[in-house]
Design a protein around this nucleic acid. Sequence first.
DNA 1: AATGATAAGTTATCAGTGATAGATTATCGC
DNA 2: GCGATAATCTATCACTGATAACTTATCATT
Lengths: 211, 211
Amino acid sequence: MKAPQVRSPRKPKGQGGERREEILDAALRLFSDKGLQTVSTRQIAEAAGISQPALYAYFATKDDLIAELCVRAFAGLAARMEAGKADWSPTPEAFDKAMRVYIDFGLEQPDAYRVAFMIEKSHDGSFLARTGGRPMAAGVETFKAFAAMISDLHAHGLTAEDDPLRLTQTLWAGLHGLVSLLIARPEFPWVEREALIAGHIAMLRRGALTS
Amino acid sequence: MKAPQVRSPRKPKGQGGERREEILDAALRLFSDKGLQTVSTRQIAEAAGISQPALYAYFATKDDLIAELCVRAFAGLAARMEAGKADWSPTPEAFDKAMRVYIDFGLEQPDAYRVAFMIEKSHDGSFLARTGGRPMAAGVETFKAFAAMISDLHAHGLTAEDDPLRLTQTLWAGLHGLVSLLIARPEFPWVEREALIAGHIAMLRRGALTS
DNA sequence: AATGATAAGTTATCAGTGATAGATTATCGC
DNA sequence: GCGATAATCTATCACTGATAACTTATCATT
């Protein structure tokens, strides 16, 4: 029967006390530079100034570390969406603005976007299996905010589709297609990027809203 | 100065003489079951009835093997697109049909689709680096056929966009978004699939063509 | 039919991966 | 100082993709 001691916060060996943050920072930098697959746990550990097994005191698996980075980045997206809600109104202009928030997020946080929507869980369920659906849940949250906007447009009779949920899903797919292709195939001979994004949003608007 | 001997076809040890085909067949089955990442070269070799290093007599790397599978599958898509050209006409109905050919291909050949459009080359260029852009080239070919259709529609004044190339790219992105999300996130609470696809195509049509 | 050349396949091995076990060191309350 | 525990390290495991060196089967030719 052990005494229920108070887990007093204690400074680790390293330095300030934020080992976990240091690891996440180092990992994010490496992932952004070289991609998720090619970065090894040993490289992360070295960049964080610790030994490789020490990582496993803070993260159960490499995937858990990645998922954590993803969840944090999505918190940023949620914040942006929330901020955008301030000047929301059921108008085509606000629609365009919301689309661009999503696209900008994906292109600015490609690693987070990858983990959330582009990396597959293995068929036998290794990746993200015990991670539950944490990063996915973060994405679902964003999706809900999205669905609310579309429902609002639908309620005002501005949508060209009777089922707002279905419309939300097709719009999301439309956005995801551009973001994921730009991330995965940057070397493709795309037309000028700004024009591409603007054209894409315009196409989605024409397809989703009544003219 | 070696005599330019005739490389007479010779039966290998194994059986019929189609070792390479046997390997590709075994690999495709395994990849479809368990995903690209989790299947090891040893598993492929065992399924093909040879030792693991023997694979490297036929494929320089595992990625080359994957790329080969992709190229073959894309030949199938090219064939479908070509077949679809038979009853092509610059009409909304034909547009819908072409969209569906693409979506159906992606959903029926998810492994090929993954390799062609969803798997990223590592930033430092390991994957598909020496593979050149073979599978990518196969995709580009498909893209061209697509661009031809859009240009035809544009020439007949049916498009809602002045730049047919940009429109082709946004449409492709729109298609890719649905296909890749359905492949990567099948567990997401989608609306009924057929209605989703039909709705997606309808949205793309309204966004791309004049009503 | 025996021969040399070559293709096809083998076993043994390498460096690198994610992850675990057990010993070791630092830091705490007392 | 003391014991307890958190934090970290070294050593190691099973497995990965890939290579080297050797052996065996098949061929064209004599």
